[in-house]
Design a protein around this nucleic acid. Sequence first.
DNA 1: GGTTGACAGTTAGTCATCTAACACTTAGTC
DNA 2: GACTAAGTGTTAGATGACTAACTGTCAACC
Lengths: 148, 148
Amino acid sequence: MSDSPSEPTTILGQLRWIAWAQRKAGEDWIRERELSHEQSFALGYLTQHPGTIQRELARVTRTSAASVSSLLQGLERRGLVERRTDPENERRKLVYATEAGSQLVAGFDTALVGIEDELLAPLDPAERAALHALLARITAQLPQPTRD
Amino acid sequence: MSDSPSEPTTILGQLRWIAWAQRKAGEDWIRERELSHEQSFALGYLTQHPGTIQRELARVTRTSAASVSSLLQGLERRGLVERRTDPENERRKLVYATEAGSQLVAGFDTALVGIEDELLAPLDPAERAALHALLARITAQLPQPTRD
DNA sequence: GGTTGACAGTTAGTCATCTAACACTTAGTC
DNA sequence: GACTAAGTGTTAGATGACTAACTGTCAACC
């Protein structure tokens, strides 16, 4: 074996590398707004899925309930999100992005699209479709921190 | 726009998901040895590349010099690695896995191969090669935390 | 030969995340 | 109705990683 599987010559090494590059690419955008990566992601998600409960946020961000809890505390302290107890099930808290929160992350998704577009620049549309299809085969069998 | 680019329907969402799954899959193996992910990775790398300097370790792990420093402190305290100042350049420290360190991560790379194999199970060899080629096109243009 | 700037690593302080334990709510069961 | 188990969220403590500032070393240049 010429190379360790931890290195970029392996498929998983490539994946981790690209994921890392994406993270780095988004950092400027995020830092301007004084948010963390996960905060931006959560806020962006909430603008598109108002009333998400915390447990689902944990699922889509693939993190823990505890992390979501403290993450939202930070956002709430800054008035960017609002938590309301679900009247129909008082265990749950429905989370909403406030007007300020929505405005702060306005353009977040377009920024992400831009980053994706830049990273995928070497591939033409047909190749992107092929890549997407291959990856879908893999994700289809993955463990389940999925959204509904 | 039917979906946020943060979600698994996008290519970058898929990548992050798979990278996350890989991490989770390795956790059992790692926890048995009371190591962190980065520690395992570094120790595995050092068994295959003895005498690596810390700055290069930071590059291949795509982290900071400070993180490598404290990471190695932990490994050195447990006698798993050894740091020797490079006699030819006293700024540098050459890092070696000790015998104990090598034995501890013996099988690390085969474990990684197993994880990769499991994740890629849905793809046949030709498809894996295609995936690898597509990803290589992307990584070829990425910013440069590369090895030599 | 001293000065300057780049390179290599460490330290201190901060922040985010995780795990484990806890409190509260709901639903099922006797 | 009381008991039990599962679902939801929070808190506390430990860990890990980052940024910024620092020390020490090398190389280039006048």
